[in-house]
């Protein structure tokens, strides 16, 4: 195996260009599990943790190399909430937002936040330069992304208009170090519209558009509307049954979580 350890983005992109099949290594918390379990035997690895251009977080731009530990202590409420639920302190010290985006697991804890915000993913290549894709253009299937073989994820770009209220919650069978069986992020925007995103209930993170429409611009939804929203979410998600949870449970819990989060975000 060969490893390239660039310290600048240009060098990283050059390496990516020269080794289009190379595995990208950031925090290692996904890649190394595959390596340890012999599911993947990298021939070429590009290690990204020394690349200064992706390590920073400035305003709306969260560098791909920013760790969960940093986001947990950051100013964005729901992002901090979800970061606190990722793995363990050891995982949060190593794992990055870029890795979460690149792995594109349906259970990726950071993805509902990006989906709710309609965030963009910034990628770059040596040949074509920088491009930005909306989250749903980038996350295309179970562990499938639109990243091209010569590209590297540079940052998550948050929109200019940020919510006035945002809440995240995650259901798992134990109280720490658990893969979500359902996760949800709900936001109330300045124009009074609502954003609802869910993880672990479809091949990719999804938005609950029907429920968002039902909520309209109601600032403080109550009673029957909340129940309708919960039902709409439960109907809208597309979960599977596996050894972690049943489809029926995931539908139910999706509705309950969203209802509670809407309540917490209500004016």
């Amino acid at each position: 195996m060969e490893i390239v350890r660039p310290t600048t983005l240009d060098d990283a992109l050059a390496a990516r260009d020269a080794l289009p099949g190379a595995d990208l290594l950031a925090g290692g918390t996904d890649l190394m599990v595959e390596v340890n379990f012999h599911h993947r035997e990298p021939e070429h690895v590009i290690a990204l943790r020394r690349v200064s251009e992706i390590a920073g977080w400035e305003g709306r731009r969260i560098g791909a190399g920013v760790t969960w530990t940093r986001m947990e202590k950051g100013p964005l409420r729901a992002l901090a909430q979800l970061s606190r639920t990722v793995g363990s302190p050891q995982i949060r010290n190593a794992g990055t937002i870029g890795g979460n985006i690149g792995t594109a697991s349906p259970a990726g804890d950071g993805l509902p936040y990006l989906a709710a915000l309609d965030a963009e993913i910034e990628v770059a290549s040596a040949g074509r330069g920088v491009r930005r894709l909306r989250w749903d253009e980038f996350l295309v299937g179970v562990k499938q992304t639109a990243l091209r073989p010569d590209e590297i994820i540079i940052a998550a770009i948050l929109p200019e208009v940020m919510p006035v209220a945002e809440e995240f919650a995650k259901v798992g069978v134990r109280n720490a170090m658990v893969i979500s069986t359902v996760s949800a992020c709900v936001m109330r925007m300045p124009d009074s519209t609502w954003r609802i995103a869910l993880g672990s209930v479809a091949p990719t993170v999804i938005r609950a558009r029907r429920a968002e429409e039902l909520l309209g611009t109601t600032a403080a939804p109550r009673g029957s509307l909340l129940a309708e929203v919960a039902d709409a979410v439960a109907a809208e998600v597309r979960p599977i049954t596996d050894h972690r949870a049943t489809e029926a449970y995931r539908r139910h819990a999706s509705g309950v979580l969203v209802r509670r989060l809407v309540g917490r975000c209500a004016a």
Partner: peptide, 27 residues
Amino acid sequence: CEQGECGSCSVLFDGELVCACLVMAAD
């Protein structure tokens, strides 16, 4: 466990607590 789910291999890596099983030695 070799998947960061038990902490038995916890080390300080450049001062941060991590699971050594998830750090690629070549890096």
